[in-house]
Simulated scan of single mutants.
Amino acid sequence: MVERAERLSFFRLPAGRSLAEVLRALKGVGYGAGPVRRSAFRVLFFETQDGRLFREGLRLGLELRKGRPLWRQEGAGGRTERTVPVALAAALEGEIGLEAAAAGCPEASVSAAGPRRLLPLVRLAGWRAEAELASPSGARLEVGLDLFWAAPPEVSPRREGPPLRLLTVRLPEGDPAALHHAAAFLRDLLRLEPSEGDACSVALGSTGLPEPGAPLPARLAVLPTDRMAVAARKVVERQALLMERSSAGTRRDLDPEYLHDLRVATRRLRAALRLFGPALGVRRAESLRTELRWIGGLLGAVRDLDVQLHDLEPFGERLGEAERVLAVLRADLLERRGPAMEVLRSALASRRYAALLRRLRALGGSSPPKRP
């Protein structure tokens, strides 16, 4: 069960069970329940490339409610909603990066994002039913059921197949014990299964998208007592997982940092395979290093141009009238970057790259990932 700042608890509600059933059960143990409100919703969640909002316990989404777009932020300070500037409303439907402050985001998200751009993370569409509760102790709670479909940010969710179902219990204010009591009742007496995360996390899991900033599995930590072969496999799987997390963002060219992280992971893997070759099998390690050298070369071609473009920026204010020279240089670099990025994008979507990821994960000892 996930509880964020002792204000939210999440549960999976199986098909065939309804919010009305949950409310009846709560009334039976002394809770009061208000009328159920129902509405359709669409939401596009945003996050920085390195998961800064996630690490601060924040979730930021652009929600379209009754035709009106607004920012909806959940976090330690509770829920904050803010109307989206009219000029940004249409643009926010596209796959773009935003400056948090310029986009009129709530202050906590602006502070957490810092200089990093906000990037589209995942889309949801569905229906919500919610009601207010009064606990036996007099605390005010909110309970809601979301039925939704999810999709990557560049496409709209298709309402096909059974929807994802998430029950949320929220404590707007007051003693956290009231939330714990309600959550314990749902878990122990109604036998509801706690969810591993909120609607955004569930959506990411269903679409196979990574959670930016999420820690790597604890089982991959290298221990002093690990045998060489075990340590080697952990190192390989850690870096392979980091490759997977950065691949989609690199392919969509959302932020240069995705490409940078992917390149770092490939370089570390090449070094690890050279170091641990005897423990992993020299021929297998060399074969994988050859494939990593292939994708690393394509990554390096684009990354070198990104670095040059970045290094040009500080000179803009110093050159004065000679800034036209800078514009020519920038245009030349961008012209060269386009074809290099297309070659890289094709490689990342290829069977060869998918096979490389599967082989790395298999070497690490886990099941191979799905093909992109």
Rank of each mutant, 00 (worst) to 15 (best):
residue 145 L to Y: 01
residue 322 A to W: 15
residue 24 R to H: 09
residue 16 G to Q: 04
residue 44 L to C: 06
residue 318 R to K: 12
residue 35 P to F: 09
residue 177 A to E: 02
residue 176 P to H: 00
residue 78 G to E: 08
residue 220 L to N: 04
residue 154 E to F: 00
residue 205 G to Q: 11
residue 98 L to N: 00
residue 290 T to P: 03
residue 21 E to R: 10
residue 261 D to H: 13
residue 82 R to W: 00
residue 47 E to F: 09
residue 172 P to Y: 03
residue 292 L to N: 06
residue 335 E to I: 03
residue 315 F to V: 07
residue 163 P to H: 15
residue 279 A to W: 03
residue 138 G to M: 10
residue 279 A to Y: 05
residue 262 L to S: 06
residue 71 W to P: 04
residue 353 Y to P: 09
residue 164 L to M: 12
residue 372 P to I: 10
residue 355 A to M: 09
residue 362 A to V: 13
residue 316 G to R: 14
residue 159 R to M: 13
residue 273 L to N: 13
residue 115 P to H: 03
residue 284 R to E: 15
residue 314 P to T: 09
residue 303 R to K: 09
residue 164 L to I: 11
residue 315 F to T: 14
residue 341 M to T: 12
residue 202 V to E: 13
residue 324 R to S: 14
residue 14 P to A: 09
residue 241 L to H: 02
residue 176 P to S: 00
residue 32 G to H: 05
residue 319 L to C: 09
residue 226 D to E: 11
residue 95 E to A: 04
residue 289 R to F: 11
residue 6 E to W: 00
residue 54 F to C: 02
residue 233 R to N: 02
residue 176 P to G: 05
residue 334 L to I: 09
residue 93 E to Q: 01
residue 220 L to F: 12
residue 244 E to Y: 04
residue 62 L to I: 11
residue 303 R to E: 15
residue 7 R to V: 10
residue 257 E to K: 07
residue 41 F to Q: 12
residue 82 R to P: 02
residue 23 L to S: 06
residue 224 P to G: 07
residue 210 P to M: 07
residue 172 P to E: 00
residue 34 G to P: 07
residue 70 L to M: 15
residue 172 P to V: 03
residue 164 L to S: 13
residue 326 L to P: 10
residue 45 F to N: 13
residue 364 G to K: 02
residue 111 S to N: 08
residue 270 R to F: 06
residue 11 F to M: 05
residue 32 G to Q: 07
residue 313 E to V: 14
residue 160 E to C: 06
residue 188 D to R: 15
residue 100 A to L: 01
residue 44 L to V: 05
residue 301 A to I: 04
residue 131 A to D: 05
residue 220 L to K: 00
residue 25 A to F: 02
residue 94 G to L: 08
residue 8 L to Y: 11
residue 29 V to T: 14
residue 198 D to R: 06
residue 121 L to G: 03
residue 104 G to I: 10
residue 278 P to N: 14
residue 250 T to K: 09
residue 273 L to S: 12
residue 165 R to H: 12
residue 53 L to W: 04
residue 176 P to I: 00
residue 216 L to A: 12
residue 27 K to F: 03
residue 76 A to W: 11
residue 314 P to W: 10
residue 188 D to W: 07
residue 275 L to Q: 13
residue 75 G to L: 10
